[in-house]
Design a binder for these strands. Structure first.
Length: 592
RNA sequence: GGCCCCGUGGUGUAGCCUGGCCUAACACGCCACCCUGUCAAGGUGGAGAUCGUCGGUUCGAAUCCGAUCGGGGUCGCCA
């Protein structure tokens, strides 16, 4: 029967005269008594079906009972519409099916929200009836775009000789990194598998195994709090390559991602390659963040030298204590009033731990601000020159430790960029950020921890400083950033056992501990490991950018809500005692 | 855990600031009937919400106050 099937959105004028069968859902019904029009919908579109009471009485009787979202089979003859009846608004508007049979394959209750139109609906309700939400045109389009993107990623990767290898979902837990989702073992009481946060170790082992170009569309799970662009389950384009350096990895991804992007016609424009590059240092200095949105300017300018001796005590004091002063110039910022700056904008700066926000308006006849009087004419002139402030602009300044200044001004820059619409929404800026720091100080423990992961290689000249000033050591880790959002990361790995030992030592991991946690990897490396590196790109986020949505749930068929619940099936849920007993688990009562 | 926003028939909104004219309005949807060229069909008639929940203020609360629940955003978190 499916051989006779024609998709609803496909018939055209030159199909007129054919006997056709359509299957689909009732999108609209127009009952005129003796004549009933049904718009029948499938994923490809809709087709108008005409049912005449005198010509097809049985079909007419059935069509009279039909309601929205009923599932139908209609058989009949496709005819060209007369000129005055053509509907230019739909693709099949030049034809219609004159039905002689109308079969209800399934009746449908009135849906809880409109399926046939793109109205805004409470998201909880959409998730509860996700199958209906997915039936809507918008979600069909988005998920089909995602599927296409994945197909093209695979094709482009295969083109470069990458081999797709599946890695296990039940693996050993790792104490580092994100919180693991755990799976209890039935055969080993008290022991647990973890679901992978990424296939990191397996893909490196694939290099040892001689699969010199590995890739996978890998499903990853992390038990952390959710965001608009973060789900507990997500998919990565995971890649690893042997005998390569950064340039090879970049080149591979600059082929794979743009090829798939182009095939999907994402944002209506291809990505330009090569992607621009910024070092982490440059990104922090100019944009204040490690994932800069380069669609607009408003760069950070360093005023530390200029203002180290200023009469404005707050600034001079900060510089004397080793801090920095930086500023951004808001073009046309004359319209920012005092209450707005001291309210919303200062809140943004304070949220990044800045103590305050200083501001100066540049007027045609000088500078205006409560603090302008503390600066000398020379200092004001220099501020104007360094920040390139023109009359009608406003300069915002923060003085603090370098990281706080960067964070505060970076957050302000992003806030102002969005609020003042400083970029074209159709624009997509994809770039590499390179040379991330190898280590960072843990806020919790105060100790040193890896910024990426402990197998990340080190920039050649920086190994000498590993023991003396570890925080200054640059790694060979890199990110892809899209419109201010991290869309993936990777690194060239360590394969030199001596260097690996030094990294472990810097992290305070002794030989025994390293052996216990990563012994299998270190052992594997003793049997001939090729130099290698790789990358993992967040597919959900790439598709989000490609489609221009800010909501990751829009590109995932069955996502979780902010509480990580799947509200359609109501997971997570308690399980039977029997099931727990078999797994040797006793649930501890919580105080909540 | 902190902060911000939202919560009115099935859906989407208005009303809330400035309490009473709200016996809660509008559009879509839903039900019945009419209708042979509609396509956001049309016409006639109809059903449907005590305004998330609880408490308080008041002569009077959708409207003001407090608490609480639910949803979203964000910070922390995400090697």
């Amino acid at each position: 029967m499916t051989l006779e099937r024609t998709y609803c959105g496909t018939p055209r004028r030159n199909d007129a005269g054919r006997r056709l069968t359509f299957y689909g859902w009732v999108d609209r019904r127009r009952d005129q008594g003796g004549l009933i029009f049904l718009d029948v919908r499938d994923h490809s579109g809709t087709v108008q079906v005409v049912i005449d009471a005198t010509r097809a009485p049985d079909a007419h009787r059935a069509a009279h009972e039909v309601r929205l979202e009923f599932v139908l089979r209609v058989d009949g003859e496709l005819r060209e519409r007369s000129a005055q009846n053509v509907n230019p608004r739909i693709a099949t508007g030049e034809v219609e099916l004159h039905a002689d049979a109308c079969t209800v394959l399934s009746a449908a209750k009135t849906p809880p929200f409109p399926v046939n139109e793109d109205t805004e609906v409470d998201e909880q309700l959409r998730l509860r009836y996700r199958y209906l939400d997915l039936r809507r045109e918008r979600m069909q389009r988005q998920l089909r775009a995602r599927a296409r993107f994945c197909t093209e990623l695979r094709r482009a990767a295969a083109e470069l000789g990458f081999v797709e290898i599946e890695t296990p979902q039940l693996i050993r837990a790792t104490p580092e990194g994100a919180r693991d989702y755990l799976v209890p073992s039935r055969l080993f009481p008290g022991s647990f598998y973890a679901l992978p946060q990424s296939p990191q170790l397996y893909k490196q082992l694939s290099m040892v195994a001689g699969f010199d170009r590995y890739f996978q569309l890998a499903h990853c799970m992390r038990d952390e709090d959710l965001r608009a662009d973060r789900q507990p389950e997500f998919t990565q384009l995971d890649v690893e390559m042997s005998f390569v350096d950064e340039e090879d990895v970049f080149a591979a991804l600059e082929h794979i991602i743009p090829a798939a992007w182009l095939a999907c016609d994402f944002r209506g424009s291809p990505l330009t390659v090569p992607f621009p590059r910024l070092t982490w240092r440059e990104a922090m200095d100019r944009y204040g963040v490690d994932k800069p949105d380069t669609r607009f300017g408003m760069l950070l300018h360093d005023l530390t030298e200029t203002l180290k001796g200023t009469g404005f005590r707050v600034f001079a004091g900060t510089v004397a204590a080793g801090g920095v002063v930086k500023g951004i110039c808001v073009e046309g910022g004359a319209d920012l009033n005092r209450s707005e700056i001291e309210g919303r904008l200062t809140d943004v700066a304070r949220a990044a731990k800045a103590k305050g926000l200083a501001y100066l308006w540049r007027r045609s006849d000088g500078w205006e601000s409560g603090i302008a009087k503390f600066f000398s004419d020379g200092e004001l002139k220099a501020i104007g020159e360094i920040t390139d402030a023109k009359p009608g602009d406003c300069v915002l300044m923060v003085a603090d430790s370098a990281p706080v200044v960067a964070a505060a001004l970076g957050a302000l820059r992003n806030h102002l960029g969005r609020a003042r619409k400083l970029y074209d929404d159709s624009r997509v800026d994809m770039l590499w950020v390179t040379e991330f720091p190898m280590f960072e100080r843990s806020e919790e423990t105060g100790g040193i921890q890896p910024a990426h992961h402990p197998f990340t290689n080190i920039v050649a000249g920086d190994t000498d400083r590993m023991e003396s000033e570890p925080l200054a050591v640059r790694s060979r880790a890199y990110d892809i950033v899209v419109n201010g959002r991290e869309a993936g990361s990777g690194s060239i790995r360590i394969t030199d056992p001596a260097l690996q030992q030094r990294v472990f030592a810097a992290l305070g991991i002794n030989a025994g501990e390293a052996q216990r946690k990563f012994g299998f990897l270190l052992e594997a490396f003793e049997y001939g490991v090729p130099p290698h590196g790789g990358f993992a790109a967040g597919i959900d986020r790439l598709v989000m950018e490609g489609l221009g949505t800010d909501n990751i749930r829009d590109v995932i068929a069955f996502p979780k809500n902010q509480q990580a619940q799947e509200v359609m099936t109501d997971a997570p849920a308690p399980v039977d005692d029997d099931q727990l007993r078999e797994l040797h688990i006793a649930v501890r009562p919580t105080s909540r």
